[in-house]
Simulated assay, not measured.
Amino acid sequence: MNRLGLRGRLLVAQIVVLLVCCVTIAAVAVAIAAPLFHNHLAMAGIEDDNVRLHTEEAFSQTIFVALLSGIAVALVGASIAAVYVVRRITAPISRLAVAAQSVAEGKYDVHIEHSDVDSDFTRLEGAFSDMAERLDHSDRVRKRLLADLAHELRTPVSTLAAYVDGLEDGVLEADGTSWAVMRDQLERLRRLAHDLSDVSAADEHALDLILAADDLSDIVCSTTTAVAPRFEERAVTLSTATPAHPVRVRVDRQRIEQILSNLLENALRHTPGGGSVAVAVTESPDHISVAVSDTGEGIPEDQLESVFDRFHRGESSDGSGLGLTIARSLARAHGGSLTARPNPLGGTILELALPGQLASDT
């Protein structure tokens, strides 16, 4: 029985049920028809035993042949119907089993044709398709992340290995320059590990937000004040423009500060000495935005969207390549957006937009 599979078992079960029904119908017909016919002959006044005997034999043979013919026709017709029904029921199950086997083997790019057998089964097919798509997406993200990570780790690890070998062999001196280079590479690895933690949480939609009513202008001013010394060191002018009144929003203050820090760090990295970076908070009926404008070399038109890709770095970039990726993920977690566009004065404008419904008058 185990070799028959689900389709064979259902078919056998259908035939067994049909046979039981046919036998039951035949037994009931024989048990009732003969006595009932005998009573009808008696009521008709037929007293001749030979006539009654031949009549009852003819009736019994007729009933037998009719029942046998009916059962045969019913079995054939019902078998055909059973085969059709069983195949219609089991076909989507077979397809789902094949798809499940593919997923078990690590082949997540499967396509399941939705059937109309049953609403519950249709939901099952839809849920399985969604699961396969999520697994496929996670697998592609994992492979891309590992490839990008391997590429990103290669440079600092190779640099550290070269300096350690050079110090051991006496080729390099253990002076301030060597220690500074190695310390920079270690800091790069530390920053990369921290950024990877955030970007992994973003990929899994597991960014934790602690939302509270706050003043967006105060957040902007606090962030720009914290980074102002670095701008002074690079001789880059940093200016801030905010509304005179508080701009109340319901956000995670630390996460918004993280977004702004990434935007300002990116602007400083790409703005030469003597340039300027401006931060402006504006309000509109449907959203509140913070625009960070720089006068650096700008971003090519064809890279305005790709700058938000993981590990994307321009020619003059020395960061981890994850800052803007994390910033956009945090913006979207707040229900907002982060976009880039050319600055008419030269350079780039990165704009954080938060939906208007986050605003609060409290």
Rank of each mutant, 00 (worst) to 15 (best):
V103W: 10
E47R: 00
H54G: 05
A333Y: 09
S69K: 03
E233S: 13
S119Q: 13
K107Y: 14
E351L: 12
H334A: 09
Q61M: 09
S222N: 10
L167I: 14
G176W: 00
S138N: 13
L209M: 06
D118L: 08
F128N: 02
A193T: 02
V20W: 00
E297M: 12
R188N: 07
Q185I: 07
M1Y: 06
R269E: 12
L216R: 04
H194S: 15
S217E: 04
Q303R: 14
I219G: 04
M182L: 12
L67E: 01
R328E: 02
R328D: 00
A31K: 02
H287E: 11
K143F: 15
I46L: 04
V247Y: 02
R154Y: 14
A327P: 00
S293K: 03
D139H: 03
N39S: 11
E257F: 04
V76A: 08
L358E: 05
R328A: 07
L338N: 00
D116G: 14
V251A: 02
D361Y: 11
L238F: 12
A72Y: 03
V292H: 09
E173M: 01
A201R: 12
R3M: 07
L68H: 10
E125P: 04
L304T: 07
R183I: 11
R88H: 10
A331K: 02
V157A: 13
A174V: 05
L192S: 05
S217A: 11
A26H: 04
H151C: 07
